[in-house]
Design a protein around this nucleic acid. Structure first.
Lengths: 119, 119
DNA sequence: ATACCTGGTCTAAAAGATAGACCTACCTAG
DNA sequence: CTAGGTAGGTCTATCTTTTAGACCAGGTAT
């Protein structure tokens, strides 16, 4: 299952392309945050906590453009806007889940490595 | 399986912590680049292509501190420095592999979503 | 002597992120 | 009528991060 990852960086590389999009400070966090259910802008803002409005807006717009998230506006007063994962977005949750499980399993080892280096 | 990812962002969160480290512009790329074999500084620089020396140095230093990568200096002239994945680093390749496979499978869908949005 | 090699570091300037004020649009309390 | 609140943003001024590119050691090849 073979750990043989092999990526040719020199070509116009789909993996580079995808990683550049989701591998930023916030995208994965927003995706994970939307995993359990549809949420509203300020709800995401509060839940993630240390993201700025602007970055959340920008991140959501890009996720929408890339087809990960769907944005629905309800013309009510006060306005309501809901963000939901698309099928594509949900499909990404599986590999992300692997990453999350890995993080959960190994964060102690990382903490120790850091301690070794700072001590 | 079940895509039930559930992360509590309000706590000192190991997933947040780990994602903040590997979820930057370059770390995953360096890790993937080191997957097939040990490499030297300038080799990584050339292979990744659009990373600056400084960012590569900084990324490698952080990956080393977190225990993903081992740095070996050979006191030759000209100097030689080799970077290898540790066991921890190699263990991370598995979930990353899931991500890479996902990217390979779905990059067309993303390209189409982008086209829909720009058109 | 001169130019060149590696694996970096340093600095100045460009790019990106943040906080916080502000905006639309309507509703309610006084 | 005025003041204040709510939701979802945008705008701007400031701060941080990233970049390009010069520079360094200390040897080797020309």
């Amino acid at each position: 299952m073979s750990g043989a990852i092999h990526v040719d960086f020199s070509q116009p590389c789909p993996i580079r392309d995808v990683l550049d999009r989701i591998g930023d400070q916030w995208s994965l966090l927003v995706l994970v945050s939307l995993a359990p259910r549809t949420k509203r802008f300020n709800e995401l803002l509060r839940e993630i906590g240390d993201i700025s409005k602007q970055m959340l807006a920008r991140t959501l717009r890009r996720l929408e453009q890339d087809g990960f998230v769907e944005r629905t506006v309800y013309p009510e007063v006060p306005p309501r806007v809901e963000y939901t994962l698309t099928e594509l977005g949900r499909s990404l949750l599986e590999p992300i889940g692997g990453l999350v499980r890995w993080a959960d399993t190994h964060h102690l080892a990382i903490a120790e490595a850091r301690k070794r280096h700072s001590g």
